[in-house]
Design a protein around this nucleic acid. Structure first.
Lengths: 166, 166
DNA sequence: CGTATATCAGTTTTACTGAGATGC
DNA sequence: CGCATCTCAGTATAACTGATATAC
């Protein structure tokens, strides 16, 4: 009716498949689903979930931050972040105190226990990455990481470091 | 040379940040979340969801199949696939009939309406992929696709084409 | 005033589990 | 019998949407 080129069109001349396996969005979804499943399983052993890890790493990487900041940096919704911080502070992995400079905000800080916990999670996550990427050579892993990061940056999915440093 | 701001995680000799953005599993999750959000939004315009698309494409690529087969090929859980087929057959995009050779199975076939519908979805998905991958050059897109496919194959997340058939 | 932050109370999907019914 | 397929009922997250209270 419209196009008759063999790009993705009709039944007629298409050899076999190709379409299904050529859709990055679909591949992305499937691999991510698997990766998430794996991450949840392993982190559960340490009583953590992936958002816990994301928050702790963000705190280590960028230092204390407001919840709004953490939300931007991790990709967690603000409303959901509250619960994550609750859970982390119940276990004394982070501390949440009002920001003296701006009383609308809280300042979330990682505690020494949090740091210790995070180190344990690091090991779990490292082995997870290793398993996930095992079929790829080292430079291919790097390549994949770079490509994904480019996508992330372009779509502004997370906000990168504001170089504060007090 | 790094201006080592020790405030964030001095131990382990880890340079500032880097960790967060170097975790493929995390990047994967964030990009996939975005991609899924986009896909759902756009497909919703045509009254479809991504699993609908996956099933229809699979039928076009491989021909009629049982639900169990479709489940393997698309990554949809068997229990959930039932609902998807229900929705697709209510709209006459597919037909579900008992397999004469094995009465435990159904044979799911795409109808001409389904084919038409699928063509519309193809266009939506193409523009989606274009938007998603816009920051990447053509060969980079290819590279990304290949890497993801390798991961998929290695972890046996979907079953690839069975014998050519007829 | 309008805006931003944190919190709470929800809805809606979605991934996943388990068990039954039927047929091989 | 054991095993596979389809179906249904249900759980558990997860993503997402307000609305409110408070402070700038």
């Amino acid at each position: 009716v419209t196009t008759t080129d063999e790009k993705a069109g009709g039944e007629g001349g298409l050899a076999t498949s190709a379409r299904l396996l050529s859709l990055p969005s679909r591949l992305l979804g499937l691999v991510a689903m698997y990766s998430d499943r794996l991450a949840n399983q392993r982190l559960a052993r340490a009583g953590a979930r992936k958002w816990h890890y994301a928050v702790l790493v963000t705190l280590r990487d960028f230092g204390p931050a407001s919840q709004s900041m953490l939300s931007q940096r991790t990709g967690i919704y603000r409303s959901d972040l509250v619960a994550v911080i609750n859970e982390l502070s119940e276990r004394d992995f982070v501390r949440r105190v009002p920001d003296p400079d701006d009383h609308r905000r809280n300042v979330v800080t990682m505690t020494p226990q949090g740091r210790r916990h995070l180190r344990r999670l690091d090991a779990l996550v490292d082995s997870l990455e290793e398993d996930l990427l095992s079929p790829l050579a080292h430079d291919e892993r790097e390549e994949l990481t770079q490509l994904l990061r480019r996508l992330l940056d372009h779509h502004a999915l997370i906000s990168s470091p504001p170089p504060p440093a007090e």
